[in-house]
Amino acid sequence: MTNLLSAHFARLWRSAWFWVGSVAMAWIAWRSVEGARTLANYGEPVSILSYALNFVLVLLIALPVFAAVFLNADYYYGVIRNKLTVGQRRGAVYLSDLILVASVGLIYTGVYLGVLLGFGLPQVGAGERFPLLPGWGEVAPKLAASLAVILAIGAMSVLLARLMTHRAVPLAALGLALALIFAARTADQMLLTPAEVPSYDEIVPIMDESGRTVKGYRKDGVDYTLEDCPTEPNPEYMGEPLHAALAFAQNFSPAGQAYQLYSDTVSGPVSALPPPPGVLAGFALGFTAAATGLGLAVFQRKDLK
């Protein structure tokens, strides 16, 4: 395995696609810093930590594509048979691939965070003056959980790259990554749909107990605030057990994990309530084990001619 890893990393540093990915991660981080700096210049409340987890969604595209390009060369040039001929076991080949891809994920993460925090913290700050923005106490556990998510994405990437030998596998990886992001976003929106919605005839301005004018709901001539307005079942709510099944799928899939980490810390649509970072990491490790187990089982039997 040491020899396999040594060969992998020797090839990695000479891989143009690896360096293209690194530059892309740095560029994305730089654009985030520029965006945050523009907001800060206008006095808007902003924290560079709000962008700290954006990289996970980018890795969801970058890692499968990189794995497909890098590992497919083994099939294309017949190197995979050489590895087995010199005595390497299939399990060792597969696991060395996983370690390589996960390492690339960590390197890309380091590049992204290095640029983002290195340039962003001095220029924009961590939002200490804005208590409503995420601080280190909130972001640090999620960054730790993202390490497990990177491993899960790596496991998914290696599974695809090792099972599909055709040279079009990079396109398949890209298409799959985009489809998974789309599916995660759609699942998120579906999970956000409430089980009940306010039942009212019209929206009217009303006075609350403190004398302020607030949004009110009028039903059968009676005015209610949002809290005490009668409700009715939401026809768009999917109901159980579908809702629970979708929530599990969203938490178990690397795309769902990445999307929840990403959307919870940036302004925009509020994500469905994600599980705590530790639980999300547990799901990620579970997916890694399942995907790797499946990949090993199939790869052991795969015809490599």
Partner: peptide, 9 residues
């Protein structure tokens, strides 16, 4: 080179 697939996309 087969990289052209990705380059084009």
């Amino acid at each position: 080179n087969r990289s052209v697939l990705l380059i084009c996309v």
